[in-house]
Simulated assay, not measured.
Amino acid sequence: MKIRDKIDKVLGNILAFIMAVMVINVLWQVFTRFIMGSPSSFTDELARYLMIWVGVLGAAYVSGKKMHVAIDLIPRKLNKKNQIKLKLFVNILIILFCLTALVVGGIRLVYITYVLEQYSPALQIPLALVYLVIPISGIIIIYYKVSDIINKQLL
Rank of each mutant, 00 (worst) to 15 (best):
M1C: 13
M1Q: 14
M1S: 15
K2E: 09
K2L: 05
K2W: 07
K2T: 05
I3C: 04
I3F: 02
I7N: 04
V10P: 02
L11D: 01
L11R: 00
L11P: 01
L11A: 02
L11T: 02
G12V: 05
N13K: 11
I14F: 11
L15W: 14
A16L: 11
F17K: 12
F17C: 14
F17E: 12
I18D: 05
I18R: 07
I18N: 06
M19S: 15
A20L: 05
M22R: 03
I24N: 08
N25Y: 08
N25R: 09
N25I: 08
V26H: 01
L27H: 10
Q29M: 15
Q29R: 12
F31C: 12
T32I: 13
F34D: 13
F34I: 10
F34R: 07
M36C: 04
G37K: 05
P39R: 11
S40R: 02
S40K: 03
S41F: 14
F42W: 15
D44N: 10
D44A: 13
E45A: 10
L46Y: 09
L46K: 05
A47H: 14
R48H: 04
R48M: 05
I52P: 06
W53A: 08
V54W: 07
V56A: 13
V56G: 13
L57E: 04
L57R: 04
L57Q: 07
G58W: 09
A60Q: 07
V62P: 02
V62T: 10
S63G: 01
K66P: 08
K66V: 05
K66Y: 05
V69H: 11
A70L: 09
D72H: 08
L73Q: 13
I74F: 09
I74Q: 03
P75K: 11
P75L: 10
P75V: 10
P75R: 06
K77R: 15
K77I: 11
L78Y: 08
L78R: 07
L78G: 06
N79Y: 03
K80H: 07
K80W: 02
K81C: 08
K81V: 13
I84M: 12
I84D: 14
I84A: 14
K85Q: 10
L86C: 04
K87F: 02
L88A: 14
V90W: 01
N91V: 10
I94S: 12
I94M: 14
I94L: 13
I95C: 02
I95T: 09
L96R: 02
F97E: 01
C98L: 02
C98A: 11
T100A: 15
A101P: 01
A101H: 03
L102T: 02
G105M: 06
G105S: 06
G105I: 04
G105Y: 00
G106T: 12
I107K: 01
R108P: 02
L109E: 11
Y111I: 09
Y111F: 13
Y111C: 03
T113N: 15
T113Y: 08
V115N: 01
L116Y: 13
E117S: 12
Y119F: 14
S120Y: 13
P121D: 07
A122K: 13
L123R: 03
L123C: 07
L123Y: 04
Q124K: 15
L127P: 00
A128T: 00
L129Q: 04
V130Y: 05
I136D: 00
G138C: 08
G138A: 09
I140G: 04
I142L: 06
Y143R: 04
Y143S: 06
K145D: 01
V146T: 06
I150W: 09
N151E: 15
N151S: 15
K152Y: 07
K152T: 08
Q153W: 09
L154K: 04
